[in-house]
Each structure stands twice: as structure tokens, then as C-alpha cells.
Design a protein around this nucleic acid. Structure first.
Lengths: 237, 237, 237, 237
DNA sequence: AATGAATGAGGATTCATTCAT
DNA sequence: GATGAATGAATCCTCATTCAT
């Protein structure tokens, strides 16, 4: 009768792990908790070793649950990536609004936004380490990433800066460029240079500030169309 | 491309060599040619599918030679990455010096350098697609990348801008920041936004220019003759 | 640089297998030989343990070659089944024609064909053990099996029996039925009863003969000389 | 060949129980009902996809109850097979006796038994689809199958035919062979050909009849030991 | 030297079984 | 008792690497 290949299966596992660290009441029913544990474990491992070099076994071990759950919950290893995105997005919500009180002047507001962006990108480096290689491989992922990253952030930043009267003195194009520059500076000096090119973080942060300073210098507060902006427009055409 | 026909083909070729035609250079040309073919094939495939998803078989097929050569010449798949780097560096040499004639003013020089950087990063996107994920995984690779990328470029750009007297009016820190900004803008608007986030390239290029323009505006000149700089300096004080 | 997950790979295997049985000059280039070894190993294992319970590792081990070859040569485990079919068909060729000399009378010919069929099915039991479960699962396979099995055999048997004048005395339907009965008896008493239901083979063979005898008894002959046929015909009317 | 794990999914079973039947025996009815539902679901699924390709989850879903019950009631997936057998046997009981009224002559009785066997095998095809592959793998199963199938049937058929005086004119061996031939013909033309080899069922049934007709032709009713049978015995020895 | 057939370690995934609820 | 979430052993397959030709 026997198919001979029948699973013989586990026979009582010692309740205590070898390092005695995780008591883990083997077999608990905590779907949400395990999902999150898997996501966090995946994020950490993908970020440090790369997606391909990370095995599902490692993820499960690191999350303290069974390998099979990755497949049950996320439809396999690949499903962890979208889940990672969603998780990140859900965390991001209103980060900016809550943490940064408005500044009195346009320049101050801009500078503190840049500062926040640089810090934020650094703090988000694990996610970026995972997301960027994915975006490089998958055009669709790139577009989604843009939606939830730069675009969403640009909206928030734009809203913060719009309130100042200087913003009316800027051509729309210039205003947009300034808004974008916040993310650009944040990404380059908060992530690329310190996290990818392994440059000194303090120096990067400082350089970000110097550049930001130059960018918001001399914004006229009255003249709605600045002659220099004009000139630039002409040159470009 | 196909391998099956190779044997007969090879024999035919060697037959031609019999009539006294530099049999020595033949060897080297073949070897060097195949190495290059492998590197180019690897670059293209790594860039489009990613390093891990590319098989050595594909690379060999695309290069039109045997899989074993990857191991003989580069010590395995992993060895293609440093080879790729070296190859790219050898191509990069003096690109800037040769292609960009000096501009008359600081501002023009800066703007044309930014313009060149944006274009250059876009043209180099295949290499970047391969290099960045590697740099994310391997700290050593990140540092090497920085040496041959931003650092080398910064030296060249710094040399170009140093000649103008405006550079003396800038604090060293500010001068450095401006130099770095060329690469930063080039990378973000020439590569990240169009190639990774799939944003419109023309719009990106334009925004790069707007930002660059703002950055070099109102550089205080040591020369009092320069009216605009003057004016700016006054306004600032 | 290392992807850490790189294959570390074999490091010298002892030239002598544990049981010292197969010296096997590790790594030989014998495509045809290995293909056949794999097919034979698969046939044996599928027949004894069933398709699903047989692992590709077992097959490779039994064939004395690498697991990967199953995938290279047959596109995976599933591909072994069609290969098995083809192999069997190529062996079957003209078995009947070569091995069975024609008999003098219709009855003798029929009986010796039945005898051959019973023996043949028994000898072919390994293949049938594999093929029948497949035909039960896959309608397409069932039809192909019919082509290469009963249909082909029926043609050969029909040709053998047609030569006798008794065949003209039989309605076409009856002739066909007799032809089919050869395979039917062969299958049931050569395979099903001894190999599946584990009944005594000698008894099965004997019963096959008794039944066959009854089936060809009293075939009306067009030739009035045949006394027994005559008598039978009279009795029947 | 693919297992094609399609989502079959439950569609609310046991809606029938709603028509107010003995609410007291609820417990027992539920248990017995679920056992039967599981057996029927397993039979259907095993028959259509094969034992191995059917998952316990599918069975439970199709039966409308929990996966765990398969283990509680049947000791796992493998336990469903014997349960299937028992269930089938309990259904089979006296099928023959009840449904087939006795015929007036030996020939008629034989022919109607053959006819019944052909029909019966076809109706029982789901069970046979499951049982035969099992018998091929497991010798013990083959023997049990023979007990509950051919052997039991042979007894009933033998009893039916024994009553006619022709049966005394036949050698025991011949009588046995005729009895067996009923099952043989039934199996081949009621199951193998239409259900496995996918041949036309009507044509198969007709051919069964033609063969059966030939087999019962000219049974002498007086002579206790037929000379031809004698001859056969000699030939075989 | 070059080739590509052969190798086999390693990984994602499936699914019978267990057991907390 | 019943349920189905959780478990992890076992398997097919891929593909970098080796090495006979």
C-alpha cells in the first residue's frame, strides 16, 4: 500500500533552540505577526546579500517561522517584493507632515526639507537597497517605485513650499525643479554616496547643505517673473 | 552565433592562414576578440536581465564562443564583473577632455559640463545598470566604482572650472560642492530618472538644466568689473 | 564580490564506489549510451515503484550518470515517458514476423498466435506496468498506446490469418473479433492475471489456451472436404 | 502530463441534509456522512487525476470538510484506498443476483452474463481507474482486488451456469474457463478498450458479444468428456 | 587551445501531517 | 470533536563549473 515516499516527518523538536535565545512557542497562530516577521526578515536579508543570494530558508529561519509560510502568504519568494513595497508605503504615511514643523521662511523651509530628505533616505537605505536593483530589472516596478517615492514626496514638499510668497515669484518650472531637488539631494547625499559609494556620511550631509544653500539663494519675493529665469528659458528653447 | 557550425568554419579559416599571413597575430586577435565579445555580451545581458538571471550559457552563446572560455579567461562568471569595470574604464579615458571644448565663462563651462554629464550618464546606462546593484552588494565594489566614476570625473571637472577666476571667489567647500553637483545632476537626471524610474528623458534633461542654472547663478567674482556678479553680491549682503 | 551562494563544488570523488561494483570511468562522453541507460533505469524503477514514487535521483543513480542529464536529454522526468514509448516501439519491430513461423492450418495459426501473445505480454510486463497507469491518466497517451499496441498487433495478426481459406467463411465482424481476441487473451492471461492480480502464471496460460481452443473450434470452411468443419456447420444450422 | 493544480474549490456540500431528517442522529449521521463524502470525493479525484496528483486539500475541499478528518478517520491519505475498496465491496453485494433474472438456456444465460459484465465494468470504471494502478504497485492490493473482484464474481457466475445440464458435459477446466471468460470479456470490452484505450464503446460492446457467441457455440449436452477437450489437454502437456 | 557534454550542489516549492484553537 | 494554519521533509530542476575530446 505504501507509496514508500511518504513523509516520515518530525518527531518532537527540542523546545529550546541551540542558542537558547528564542523560546518561540513552536506552532502559534499569528498570521499578521508572522507575515510582518517574514517581511522584515526579507528586507534585512535582501538588503544585505541581495535578492538572489538570499534563500527562502534563510528568510524563514530569520523570521522564526516555517519556510512554507512564504509560499502560503506571499506566493513564493517573488511575492515578498510587492509585500515589501506595501509595507514600506504604509509606514511612510505622513512621515513628513508629522515630524517636520513648518519653518518661518521659504529658505528655512527648503533647507530643513532637504535636511529631512537626506536623513530620511539614509534611514530608508535598506529598502532602497532592495528597491533599486528591482527597478533596474523591472520597468513596472520602476514606475510604481516612482509613484510611491519621488512623486508622493514631491506632492508633500510642493505643498509645504507653496505657502510662501517666494514661490509665486518663481516660474512654475523653477518651482518644480526646486521641489524635485529636495529628493534629488536627499537621494544622492543621503543614500547613494554614503550607502552605495561608501563615502563619509557627515561630509555628504554637509555638502548636501552647501548645495541646497546655493539653490535657494536670492529668491526674489516680489517680481513674479525673474529676468534670469527668463534668460534661462530663452537659452534652453 | 550558432555553435554547431563552428568546427567546419574554423578549419576553413585556418586553411587560409596557411598562405603565409601572420599566423601569430591570428591567435592573439582571436583571443582578444573573444574576450571582448564575452565582455560585451555579458554587459548587455547583465544590464537587461540582471547578473543572477543571466546564465553563462547565454553569455557564451551571445558572444559566439564556448562556455568554458568564461572560466579560462575570467575565472568564472564572477570574474566578468571586474573585467567589465576595466573595460569601461579603458573606454572612458579622456572622454571629457576630447569631446568638450572649453567655454568662455564659468557659467557656460559649468552648464555645458552638466549637460555633458547628463548625456554621458544616459549613454553609460548599461554599465550603470550592472555596476549599481553590484555596488549595493559589495562595499569594495562601491569604493572602486567611486574611484573610477565620481572621483575621476570630479578631478577632470575641477580642473576645467579652476581656471576661471570665479572659482577663487568661492569657498573651497562651495567650489567642491559645485564640482560634485555636476555628477550628481548627471546621475540623477541622466540615469536615475529616465533609466530607473522611467520618467521622460527630455523633461529630465530640462529640469537638470534649470537646477544647474540656479546653482551657478550669482557667483561672486573677484573681478569688480563683472556687473551681474556685483549686483548679486550687493543684493545678497 | 562573491555572491556567497556560489557553487563550491565537488572536490575529488573516490574513484571506487562504496560497493566497488561499478568502476564507471567518471565523465565519459557517450550520449546514446547514457540515454539508453536512463531509459532502462526509468523503465525498471517506474515499473516497480510507480512513476511518482520514483525520484530522478534514483533514476540517475541506477543509470550510473548525473541527474542533470535527465533534464538535458528528456526535458525532465516527464519526458522519460514518451522516450520510454519510443524505445519500446523500436524494439517491438517485426517481432511477430521474425519469431513465429507460419502454421499449416487456421486453427494452429490462431493458437500459436495466442500463445505468442500471452508470452509476449508477460515479457513486456514492465512496460505495461508503466504504460497502463499513464493511459488511465492521460487520454492522449491512451490513444497512442492503442496505436502502437493493439492496433499494430491486430494488423500483423490479421495478415497472418487472412491467408487461410477459413477466413473467407467468417463474417468480417467475426474475423475481426477473432483477430482482436488474440490480443485480449494475451493481455488478460499474459499480463493482468499473472502480473496484476498475482495469479499463477501456468494456470493462466493454460486457461488462455482452453479459451482460445473454444474460440476457433468449428470454423466453417468453404472447402467441403474438411469433415469436422462440415459436421459443425450441420450441427449449427 | 502536467498535474495542472487547478483550483477546483468547494461548492457547498450537504445542502441535502437540510430537509429535516432525524436531527437526533445528527452526530452519527455527520460522521458517517463525512466519511462517505470523503470516500466519494477521493474516488472521483483519484480516478480523474491519479492518486499522487490528488492532494488531501482537494479531497477535503471537494468533500466539504476539513483536511484533518482524512487523518482522523482514515489515518492519512493512504488509508483512503482500503476504505475505497471496502466501500466498493459493500455496494457490489448481490448486484448480480438482484439485477439479472435467470435465463432459460445455458447460452442465453452466458450471453446475458457477459452483457452484464461489460456494462458493469464500464459503470465501475472510476473504481477500476484507481484500483488497477494500485494493484500494479502493491502485490498485496492485487491479491485483495482479485478476491473481491474476479473471484467473487466467478463464484456467482459459476453458480448461475452450474444449473444447466450443459455444464456437466464440459470438462471442469472448460467450465472454469467459460466462467472466467465472462469477467475477461467484461473487463476488456467494458473497461480497457473504451475507458483506457479510448475506443468506441458501442463497437466494443458489439465485439464482446460476437466473441461470447463463439465461445458458447456447440456445447454438447450429453457426452460428459468431450474428445476435443481431451486433445487440448494432450497438446498442452 | 577551445569546446560543450557531463556533473551535482543548492534552491524554490509542494503537500501530507500535526496540533493549537 | 472538528478545523485549517503551521510545519518542514523531500523533490524536481537549474546552471556554474569541470574536464574528456
Amino acid at each position: 500500500m505504501k507509496s514508500s515516499k511518504q513523509n516520515s516527518h518530525r518527531q518532537a523538536v527540542s523546545a529550546v533552540n541551540l542558542n537558547g535565545q528564542k523560546p518561540r512557542s513552536r506552532r502559534t497562530r499569528d498570521r499578521a505577526g508572522k507575515k510582518q516577521a517574514l517581511i522584515l526578515a526579507a528586507l534585512k536579508l535582501f538588503a544585505s546579500k541581495g535578492y538572489d543570494a538570499t534563500t527562502t530558508r534563510e528568510i524563514a529561519a530569520s523570521a522564526g517561522c516555517a519556510e512554507g509560510l512564504i509560499h502560503r502568504y506571499f506566493n513564493g519568494k517573488a511575492g515578498l517584493l510587492p509585500a515589501l513595497m506595501e509595507y514600506r508605503v504604509s509606514q511612510e504615511v505622513a512621515d513628513l507632515a508629522h515630524h517636520i514643523p513648518p519653518a518661518p521662511t521659504f529658505e528655512d523651509e527648503y533647507l530643513q526639507l532637504v535636511n529631512w530628505a537626506v536623513k530620511h533616505m539614509w534611514e530608508d537605505r535598506e529598502f532602497l537597497r532592495v528597491a533599486i536593483p528591482r527597478a533596474l530589472l523591472d520597468p513596472g516596478f520602476g514606475q510604481v517605485l516612482r509613484q510611491v517615492g519621488p512623486l508622493q514626496r514631491a506632492r508633500a514638499i510642493g505643498a509645504r513650499l507653496k505657502k510662501f510668497r517666494e514661490s509665486q515669484a518663481l516660474a512654475e518650472e523653477e518651482f518644480d525643479a526646486l521641489v524635485q531637488s529636495v529628493s534629488v539631494i536627499g537621494f544622492m547625499f543621503g543614500f547613494m554616496r554614503p550607502a552605495v559609494l561608501r563615502q563619509d556620511r557627515k561630509a555628504s550631509t554637509r555638502m548636501a547643505f552647501v548645495i541646497a544653500k546655493r539653490l535657494v539663494r536670492n529668491i526674489p519675493s516680489v517680481d513674479p517673473v525673474h529676468p534670469t529665469a527668463r534668460q534661462a528659458a530663452l537659452l534652453l528653447s
